[in-house]
Nucleic acid binder design. Sequence first.
DNA 1: TAGTTACTAGACCGGTCTGTATAGTTCCCG
DNA 2: CGGGAACTATACAGACCGGTCTAGTAACTA
Lengths: 194, 194
Amino acid sequence: MPRRTDTRQRVLHTAAELFRRQGYQATGLNQVLQEGGAPKGSLYFHFPGGKEQLAVEAITLAGTELCDTIAGVLASATDPVSGVDGVVRALADDLVRSDFRRGCPLGTVAQTTVDNDAIRQACAAVFETWRRLVERALVAGGVPEDVAPSLATMTIAAVEGGQLLARNQKDVAPLLAVGTQLTELIRAHLREGQ
Amino acid sequence: MPRRTDTRQRVLHTAAELFRRQGYQATGLNQVLQEGGAPKGSLYFHFPGGKEQLAVEAITLAGTELCDTIAGVLASATDPVSGVDGVVRALADDLVRSDFRRGCPLGTVAQTTVDNDAIRQACAAVFETWRRLVERALVAGGVPEDVAPSLATMTIAAVEGGQLLARNQKDVAPLLAVGTQLTELIRAHLREGQ
DNA sequence: TAGTTACTAGACCGGTCTGTATAGTTCCCG
DNA sequence: CGGGAACTATACAGACCGGTCTAGTAACTA
């Protein structure tokens, strides 16, 4: 039998947003339900696995959405340098627009759920998807294949750290500095690859 | 009148360790007290500001301690490249030794306390201290003064992100990749500076 | 129309959270 | 010895936590 309501999606999106802003532990189910406009019974009907299942699905959803955004930016760029620069700018815009409340949809949750295997692995899967996306863009742009995996990991790490610092300082400057240095690094690898 | 017991220090160190492993919200005062071996009355005698004050002091303590460690490693290195490499290796060792339970003493807390100004600023102060430490080492090693601030920010961000990824994957590889790429980047700047 | 599935609604449970209140103990100082 | 400061010890308050339960409603189907 098909779904008859959009409650599940509504709750999921609300949860993704709240987890992103506040992290896993700081986000209560009551808050999710209130902001999502659903009673408790509905939550445990749609997510019998409770908070953990909600988090896993919310992370996967948010990760996939951001993945599409990143892929779009990278695809519309002519080379990996401007591609990474574009991604960083997009993330910085998002930070400013939300007054530094929305960080990376994974970073905050991943940081505080190391001891929860289900959530940890959900985050790891998304991180790996992102990394591969960046790696492909780097290789396509001329970065040698042997350094691309490591450089892609560095890119993800630096951007995560940059978002963390930016949020902590309520200033995009650290993230923009990361962008500048990242493009510098990629350029250096492109020179070496030739 | 001078202190007569070490309860305050004991509780503070326990809190620093637990905040580091679990983050702010996931760490309960009862747990801190139990592991620190102190009753509740003592906590609110020594830290009338409650959990928030405890966190601010624990962050400052842990930040200062790690600052000393970093400064020691950087000072014993002959150049910034091997210095940064040494710091990354030390952090990776710490991750492995704790079975990936201990992350950066600030990262986890900073990520989930963006909306708490006191804690946020305590973290920001430590981050800035670290950044300046790295910046000085870079300049001393020959990195041009105009790029050193940005490169130092990049270093902190990348290392934070690397620790996050390593903890999430339970594998130091991402952090080591960050180390490799960071040294590469510093070398590139040293070449340009000449 | 009767039955079944999809879903809503919210009261309720035991437990834990931060924080308070108050009494007791230990030690130094005069 | 007396008094006060430093500190311990625990009981308790009030709110909130994630999660369970049961009853009810709406829509589709046989």
